[in-house]
Every structure is written in C-alpha cells, then in structure tokens.
C-alpha cells in the first residue's frame, strides 16, 4: 500500500479523501472484474489508475505515448487483484515458459491419445514455432534429397505445406465446424513431426522398400495424431469431408518423400 504519499485530491477535508478511496475500492471490486473476459490462467492486468492522459494514443505520435504523465497519479487503490505479473518478469522466465509450451505441445502429438475426453482442447496453448520448424525441416530434407532444382523443391514444399494448412483450416470452417484458426494451424504443423522423422530416415536410407514402409508408418502416425482434433471440430456427418483433405495432404507429402530423388 502506498497511501502514505497521498496527493490531496480535495484539499478541503481529509475525511472526503478517505471516503473517495473507499468508494474507489468498492467500485473497483464491483466493476473491474466483470469488465474483463473471465479467463483466469494468466495473471490479470493492473488496470491503469489515474487521470486521463492528454496524449491521444494513436500510432502517429509515438514518442509522446510515455510522456503523458503530467498530473501525479493518486495512489493505487487497494485490493486491485494480483500485483505486477508476467509483464515485469525477467526475460529468462518468458523463454522458459515458451520452451516448455513447445515441448508439451510436441508431446501431445508424438504420443497422441485418441481416447482423451476432450480432444478439441488439444493445443489450446498453441504456438507457431513447431509448425515453422517442422515445415522448414521437411523442406530442407526434401531439397537435400532432390538432385536438381533444390531451391524450387524447398520453395514449393514450404508454400504447399503452409498454404495447405491454411486451406485445410478454412475447409473445416466452411463445413460449419467449430475450430480456431491458429489452433488448427498449429496442430496441423505439429502433426508433421512424424513425417519429418520419416523424411530424415528416407534421406539416409536409399532402399525403396524401407522408404515405403517408413513413410506408411509415419503417415499413419501423423493422421492418427490429427484425427481426434479434426473430427471433434465438425459435425459427425461431415467428418469425412473434413478429414479426407487432411489425409490427402499428408499422403501427398509422403508421396513426395518417396518419389523425390
């Protein structure tokens, strides 16, 4: 509590100020929590406390954004929820949190559990690092395997996979499915991981039979990982319409892995 440095808002009487503070506290308790969407997992925002700032917060007058503090703000009211939170945490904590998120997302895909109660909740904390790395890695292995036109192979693989993920998500949305765009992108990207492994093995081994077996196994693995999420997103009667294109994309990737030479 920093009530010690109270600036007299109303110099006439001290009791008025006390009353004001009480009212502020009361109003804060009543109104602020409802003003925010009720999603507790992150620490909440310390809401700005005081007088209106003279500078309009528009992008054009950037340098002014922080220079607005002319009137000394009154002390922050009490009972304002959790104090400074992840906004002021050390950088290392941010790095750790994001890395652990990537690891846990990857685990969900590597060890998929189709009997999970709510498969739609998979990858709720989505990130796009996984898809980015897996798409780039797949492009790299494909372009290394290719003997000619390496650059074109890479560019086409990247564009195909990135556009493919977007189109597949839009497909589900157009089918009337309940899906979140980035969550789905993230999941489809993470599900490339088995195919990445397959592509790596195929690059090292030059036996056609081994290649076919490896690609079939990793293809099944990828589809199996993507299945619960995609099927729970749409109406059961339209499930095949949503899943077939996903399967088709993974098959074409698998075909690319085998065929490229």
């Amino acid at each position: 509590m920093s009530h010690g440095d109270t600036i007299p808002l109303h110099p006439s009487s001290q009791s008025d100020i006390d009353e004001i503070e009480n009212l502020i506290n009361a109003s804060v308790h009543q109104s602020v929590p409802s003003a925010r969407p009720p999603s507790p997992p992150r620490a909440s925002i310390p809401v700005s406390v005081s007088a209106p700032s003279p500078s309009p917060f528009v992008p054009s007058n950037l340098p002014k954004s922080s220079s607005s503090a002319v009137p000394p703000p009154p002390p922050p009211p009490t009972g304002f929820g959790p104090a400074p939170n992840t906004l002021t945490e050390p950088v290392w904590d941010t790095v750790k949190r994001d890395l652990s998120r990537i690891v846990s997302n990857l685990k969900l895909v590597v060890f998929p559990n189709p009997y999970r109660e709510d498969p739609g909740k998979a990858l709720r904390d989505w990130d796009l690092w996984g898809p980015f790395f897996f798409i780039v890695f797949l492009g790299l292995t494909l372009s290394w395997s290719a003997s000619v036109k390496k650059s074109e192979v890479f560019a086409v693989a990247f564009a195909l996979l990135a556009a493919g993920a977007v189109i597949l998500t839009l497909n589900v949305l157009l089918l009337g499915g309940h899906i979140i765009f980035f969550q789905s992108l993230s999941l489809l990207g993470y599900c490339l991981f088995p195919l990445d492994v397959g592509a790596l093995i195929c690059m090292l081994k030059d036996n056609v039979i081994v290649k076919v077996v490896v690609v079939c196994v990793t293809l099944a693995w990828s589809s199996w990982a993507a299945y619960p999420f995609m099927s729970s997103a749409v109406n059961p009667r339209r499930k095949a319409l949503a899943l077939y294109p996903v399967f088709l994309m993974y098959v074409s990737v698998g075909f690319l892995i085998i065929a490229i030479d």
């Binding site: 922050p76 906004l87 002021t88």
Partner: peptide
C-alpha cells in the same frame, strides 16, 4: 495487456 498508468508514465 498494459502496465498501470503510473508505470506507463515512467
């Protein structure tokens, strides 16, 4: 998310 006004001003 933003810091509170006081911190933003600082």
């Amino acid at each position: 998310e933003c810091l509170d006004h006081e911190s933003l001003a600082r």
